[in-house]
Design a protein around this nucleic acid. Structure first.
Lengths: 344, 344
DNA sequence: ATTTAGCACTCGGATAAAACGAGTGCTAAC
DNA sequence: GTTAGCACTCGTTTTATCCGAGTGCTAAAT
């Protein structure tokens, strides 16, 4: 459907526009080394490309800008592998070489590097720790009315919530409950804790604790999984450097959206194993109309546990960003696996 | 030095400008109910006020805008107490009425309400938990190379870090260390833990643990206080609604500054017991040149443990914000005291 | 001695007209 | 099929003009 020359021209226009953010004219394309045709020829092809919906004009006698469809084609068919520059490589290396002890630390670092190397904003979800297994639970009373439940998993993840203490609980029972929980629930994945509570612990509890109903619901509360996954951002303010966001209203819409954690979550969560690229209006949310989002999952022991992503203007350096997200999701998975493996 | 009339006119101008964000002319002042003089009279006084440095012109024939000095005078001498509106009152009430179980939750809520009621951005530091006392420490090994140290205080605050395990540590010694620490350090304030480690624990450790040097430095690491205090923001994007921030560059400077946690910290930390108001360039940092910051400490058991603050344009609704910050710092202190008191 | 009315003047902002130029589409020649 | 030539389009920039809110000053009124 498109001739090779048309593809070449389209590619040139896209890459020029990604660079300059200005409508691209036939003359400037003709000056490139890879292009040997005259402006007039290019104009003809441009007209065709416009007819096919790959190019747009900002007004009747302006240069062309790539359409969303063009970016899609570019990403799907025209993209060359990207070679990282020396300092970029160093930056990435140092992330994975460092002595990282905690998953959350690794995730935050990744968000930082992503945004630093791209000058766009990065979003990192997770890691979900639902799969990791209970290593130890500790319930520490804080005064008469409350207690802190601390859960430590085999991945070194610590979760804690404060729970109201039922007044009927007798002295010493708390310790007893803790012992029972540790004995019965150790090694159970977090997401199964509540279920296991009923299947494994309930009856034992009945035997040892006086007001067993209250104790059970108290324990259930203590094991409740934290409702929201964590979201980390990096370089939000990078977006303000992009010319497409010199308009405050647009920036506001974007930044406000990013505060809505559940929305961001819905948006990035459907990233299937591998990489997802959403260009412009492919993002359902209106505030992302002029943005592209590139996201990839990272995993622990082969199972996806989180998502890393980049948000930038549709005019994004796709080749660089795609490589980078790819690389980092892979590298982050490795780091997490290393952290995890120390358990065995 | 200033006549009553001049003060009245200055106040009118300031309040008008806070409302409108536009230079104020003599005519519009003369129309106010509280003003009985003619525009010409007002113009004379305006000229005087300008000479004294309380008013400025944007150009030679424009209306006047208040100077930084004017805001200072306004805040120090002209401010009337603010009556909260019905919904505002409800909002505040609901914060302090809710069933809050954790200090951090209370603090986050406060940040939210602050920004919601002011349409500026809120910053909350802390709470510092240095004063609270160790209730329990648990060291859980994660594989052969690392362990998670979990510290629970008598205020229900949980802190955890992952620490590399010294390879020389023998089986069972970790448990022993944990026991010793719990026995010897319970009730010690967090900020004294490291010191107490040496004075109370060192010798005991020497007696029971084989490679005592490694164990000591490991323990020291486990008790290390987390270096950065927490910062919570609320309604950062509110700032984008203010006309003084319709310029993207200014917004960027501001948002970037807010990412620099240590700078924000330095900026708000010197809030002395009570309230601090910094207007425009009274903030040393250039990015806050056009901002005012109103901050107050909140406390736990009478000792200041954190700071709440509001950042807005110099043209800020001082009377409302000041009351609000006052109220909320007071209320937050009460909530924290309640949380704390449950221990006794 | 103040206060006020009157008036000339200033200057930013809005509106209109003109000059500019990057870029196009089309036609005719290569 | 490709390219040179050229008239045309239209956003941007520049220049000129007008408008009006607001001032400062002077002289009259209180």
């Amino acid at each position: 459907m498109l001739t090779d020359r048309q593809l070449l021209i389209l590619q040139s226009i896209i890459e020029d526009y990604i660079q300059s953010a200005e409508p691209v004219g036939s003359r400037s394309i003709s000056k490139k080394n890879s292009i040997t045709f005259s402006p007039a020829t290019i104009r003809n092809d441009m007209a065709d490309l416009e007819e096919f919906g790959f190019l747009e004009k900002t007004h009747s006698s302006s240069g062309r800008i790539p359409s969303q469809k063009a970016y899609r084609l570019y990403v799907d068919r025209l993209l060359l592998p990207y070679r990282f520059s020396e300092p970029e490589m160093n930056n990435i290396q140092s992330l994975f070489a460092g002595k990282i002890l905690e998953a959350e630390e690794a995730v935050k670092e990744t968000a930082g590097i992503l945004s630093e190397l791209t000058s766009y904003a990065s979003i990192v979800l997770g890691p979900e720790m639902f799969e990791s297994r209970l290593r130890q639970i500790q319930i520490v009373p804080i005064g008469k009315e409350a207690a802190v439940a601390v859960i430590v998993t085999d991945t070194g993840y610590v979760e804690n919530h404060t729970v109201a203490l039922p007044p009927t609980l007798e002295a010493g029972e708390l310790e007893q409950i803790t012992n029972i929980l540790n004995e019965r629930l150790r090694g159970i994945p977090l997401y199964q804790l509540q279920r296991a509570l009923f299947s494994e612990v309930r009856d034992v509890l009945k035997r040892y604790v006086f007001n067993y109903e209250a104790a059970l619901s108290f324990t259930e509360e203590a094991l409740r999984k934290s409702r929201h996954e964590k979201i980390f951002y990096g370089g939000k303010t990078n977006l303000l450097n992009q010319p497409e966001f010199k308009d405050v209203d647009r920036v506001r819409a974007l930044l406000e959206l990013m505060e809505e954690e559940h929305l961001i979550h819905e948006l990035l969560k459907p990233t299937i194993n591998g990489m997802t690229i959403r260009i412009g209006q492919e993002n359902t949310n209106e505030a992302f109309e002029h943005c592209s989002i590139i996201s990839a999952t990272y995993s622990l022991a082969g199972k996806p546990v989180g998502t890393i992503g980049i948000v930038g203007p549709t005019r994004m350096e796709y080749q660089k960003v795609i490589s980078l997200v790819n690389h980092l999701s892979y590298g982050l998975s490795n780091v997490l696996d290393d952290l995890y493996r120390r358990d065995s």
